[in-house]
Each structure stands twice: as C-alpha cells, then as structure tokens.
Computed example of a mutant assay.
Amino acid sequence: METLASPNAFQRATETALYVRSALPDILQNPKVAIVCGSGLGGLAQAIEPEPKIDLSYSIIPNFPQSTVQGHEGKFVFGLIGPQKLPVALLVGRAHFYEGHTMDLVTFATRVCKVMGVETMIVTNAAGGLNQDYAVGDIVCLNDHLNLAGLVGIHPLRGPNIDDFGVRFPPLSDAYDLDLRRRAHKAWKKLGFDKQKRRLHEGVYAFVAGPTYETRAECRMLRGFGADVVGMSTVPEIVVARHSGISVLAFSLVTNIAVLPAGPRGDDAEIHAMDKVELDKHLSQGKANHEEVLQAGKEAANDMQALVKQILCDIHAP
C-alpha cells in the first residue's frame, strides 16, 4: 500500500472513473456535483429522483477504500436532483484515517470525482460542538478549518505533487466558497427553517485524527484556538478538492456538545462519600457516544436533505 500521494494516484483515479462510468447510463456519466454523506446522513441519498438511480457498492469499485464505520453504508450513488434534473454523485459513507487508511486512500474518492467532471462538492459530517452557543441538532456551515493532523505532517498532499490535479502549494484562505455559503443561508430562509428550533450557524471545524473522542483539556485547547466544532473527517477531502479546483460547501451537524469544564478532582470533598457507581455517573456527564451521533443525524436528515436540494436547485435554476 502506498504511504504517500504519488503520480500513480491520477492513473488509479482515471481507471476507477472509467469503471464507474461503464456502469452508468449516459445521462449520469458526468456529474457536476458530488455530495459526501457523513455519519448518520446517508438519508441525503433520498434527495435524488428515484429513476434513473444507480447504486455501486464500494466493495466492487476498483481501487476504492472500504468504509468500516457504523452509519457509513459504503456506496457510490448516482442520480438526478431537482426540476433541472442535475446529475449528481453521492458518496454514502467515507474512508477515515483512523480506520488505518493512508491519506491517499482517504481522499481517493475526491480525486475520482474530479476526473469524472465534478465542479462542486458538498461535504457533510457529524461533529462535536465546542461553541457553547450551539445545540445538538444545529447545523454549521463551515467557513474555515484547523487541520491539526496536517500541521504535524499527516497531510493528504504530502509527497510528490500530482500536477494533473493541481499546483504544489495551493492556497486555502478561500477553501469554503463564499457564494455557496451565501446561497446556503438564503436557502435556509427560503425553506422557512429560520422559524424553527434548529439553527444554521457559520463556524470553524477542527480536524483531529481520532478515533477517540477528545478529552476535556483537548476540547478547551481547540476552543481556545477558535474552533467551533470538532470531528475526524472532511478536511482531507476539502484540501484535495481545492487542490483539484473543485468548489466546496461543507456542513457539520452538531451531534453532541463537547465537555469543556475540567473534570472532578480526586480530592474534591463532594465526591468522598460517593460509591463507585455514583463516581462513574458523576465523571461521565456529557460523555459522547457513537449511537448519539447516529440518532442526531437521523433526526436532522430531513432538514439537511431539503437544504442541500434547495441550494442545488437555486444554483442551477434557469
């Protein structure tokens, strides 16, 4: 297995794109938009028309990494969306670095999308809320990120530059397309979602390698750095998308609120009379779990689905 991105990545992405196209009718072979469905958000695939619709399991696609995480079905879905019948590709599930994949494989699907002609990518994820003004179920339109893993060398563009995709030193100050973000806020209001409990924010996403959820001290550090949400995906895909000239819109669904206050100390007087069960309950307050993530995703799926569909309809309206 390759450990660095290499010129062969373009060849492999081209081979994969040719295979995928061979399984598609002509009308679906050149999608202009790709949508990445994060944990619990596979329901976004329901936003496309029932016909024509092609599902391809990652397991049969050459060179594709396999997703092993609950809530990630692992399939490439192609169809049409909206009254304009826009051809789209949906990645229902993604590969993560923490699963043992190299960054080259984590971002391989993004490169396949580029070869297939994708111009816009909408990336979604489930994330922990660091900003204490956020609530579970809120949606965050990302406007920047902290690539913690990338800053210490775990970077998807490390190694020989692939000139077929982009330049050696791509800027990322414009990573999150401003026009697309503006359209997202307009679509939110057009749908009347601004009148409901669930809110749409803009914020900064901190990418960490995982798979452990963050400690209290790590959460305070990330919040101090300016992060509003934290998660274990998305940023590598966005880096590679921007390297390839793909415009990006990204959303985080807040599935749990991170615990920022320091935990109880062993010499706190209030815990001295507690038994072991009481101590465990006291320490675990606010602890995140993956089932919680999937449930929040399920509850927000309809709103996220409607929002993405409305944005795409507005972009490509005649």
Rank of each mutant, 00 (worst) to 15 (best):
Q46H: 12
G245L: 06
L142Y: 01
D267S: 12
Q305L: 13
R223N: 15
L307N: 02
A23G: 04
G128N: 12
L148F: 12
P236C: 03
G245E: 08
A13S: 14
Q70M: 08
L294I: 15
G224W: 10
D228L: 11
E202M: 08
S67N: 00
G100Q: 02
Y205R: 00
Q84P: 01
G42F: 12
H96R: 05
A269W: 06
H155G: 09
D303L: 08
P62E: 11
L80V: 06
E99H: 08
I48Y: 08
C219L: 12
M304N: 00
M116D: 05
M1C: 03
E299N: 09
V106R: 07
H96S: 12
H155M: 11
P170L: 05
L172T: 10
C313H: 14
K309W: 05
S233E: 07
V293C: 06
F251S: 04
L312H: 10
H155F: 15
V240Q: 11
C113P: 03
R220W: 01
V118Q: 07
S67R: 05
L91D: 02
A288C: 00
F225K: 11
F97C: 04
Y19K: 05
N289V: 02
I238V: 15
R216A: 02
V112L: 13
L307S: 05
E119Q: 15
N30E: 07
V33A: 01
M221F: 15
P170F: 01
V277D: 15
D303A: 07
P236T: 04
G40F: 13
M274D: 11
V92Q: 15
A273G: 11
A273I: 13
Q84K: 02
C37I: 06
A149P: 04
A135G: 02
L178E: 09
L90A: 03
V208C: 14
E202P: 00
N131H: 10
G100V: 07
H145G: 04
D267V: 14
T14H: 05
A301G: 04
V167N: 05
D164A: 14
A250E: 02
V235D: 03
L44I: 15
P170H: 01
L312E: 09
V20E: 11
F225V: 13
A227P: 09
G100I: 02
S244P: 02
D314F: 05
H282K: 14
M103V: 09
F193E: 07
A206D: 06
E2F: 08
C113A: 15
V115A: 03
N8G: 13
A306S: 12
